[in-house]
């Protein structure tokens, strides 16, 4: 059962299309698990539709429709291929780098996405702590499998952590299974070994 959700502000940014791609992928991983947030998202997207409907129209050039009619027989671009069948949608279609060991029992696999935020997968073994984050800008983590705990409680598959302030205590993997998460952040740089790996990888 999902306990930890993204904020309404985050869902609004996702619906409006202003959340940077890496953060949006973390939010999407939560949405795949959470009917409540999908429902809020559908209200927000309907809000986008209603706002669009109410906008005073700005005319296009006179021949805009004719020019478009000439292009309508061209085939649609093919759907993006599945690159990572082991991961849930939408992560199965994103390009990922290789796994990097970034400490004892912790591995990191960066998203090859450009944009205002960076992110990747983190796999941590039972009992290990996730690297500490220095929170500048937004940061989000969604658990894909296993579980971790921090001062905000326990996070299991589908739970999304969006800490408001600096975490004093790093999250620790709980239970007997390794914990796989998708993380993303803007502006923030990781400390310690993961920070070193981040700089080596170039993001």
């Amino acid at each position: 059962m999902i306990v930890h959700h993204p904020s309404e502000a985050t869902l609004a940014a996702y619906a409006a299309g202003t959340l940077p791609e890496a953060l949006a992928l973390v939010a999407a991983s939560h949405l795949g698990h959470c009917a409540t947030c999908r429902d809020t998202l559908s209200t927000l997207e309907a809000t986008g539709g209603a706002l669009l409907e109410d906008l005073p129209p700005v005319p296009l050039s006179i021949d805009a429709l004719d020019r478009l009619l000439g292009r309508m027989d061209q085939p649609a671009p093919p759907p993006l291929p599945i690159l990572n069948p082991e991961l849930p949608a939408p992560l199965n279609r994103v390009a990922l780098g290789r796994w990097w060991p970034v400490g004892l029992g912790i591995r990191y696999r960066p998203l090859k996405s450009s944009g205002a935020a960076w992110g990747g997968l983190v796999l941590a073994q039972p009992g290990r702590s996730f690297p500490r984050h220095g929170h500048k800008g937004r940061e989000m983590t969604c658990v894909l499998s296993g579980a971790f705990a921090d001062q905000d409680g326990k996070f299991a598959a589908g739970d999304l952590s969006e800490p408001a302030a600096d975490h004093d205590e790093p999250p620790v993997v709980i239970g007997a299974q390794p914990c796989l998460c998708i993380i993303a952040s803007e502006g923030m740089h990781l400390r310690g070994l993961l920070g070193w790996a981040q700089r080596m990888i170039g993001r």
């Binding site: 791609e21 949006a24 992928l25 999407a28 759907p79 993006l80 939408p90 279609r93 944009g115």
Partner: peptide, 12 residues
């Protein structure tokens, strides 16, 4: 932004 929205990565 040269980015993608996750809904474009979802299966049809």
């Amino acid at each position: 932004r040269r980015e993608r929205h996750p809904s474009d990565l979802m299966p049809d």
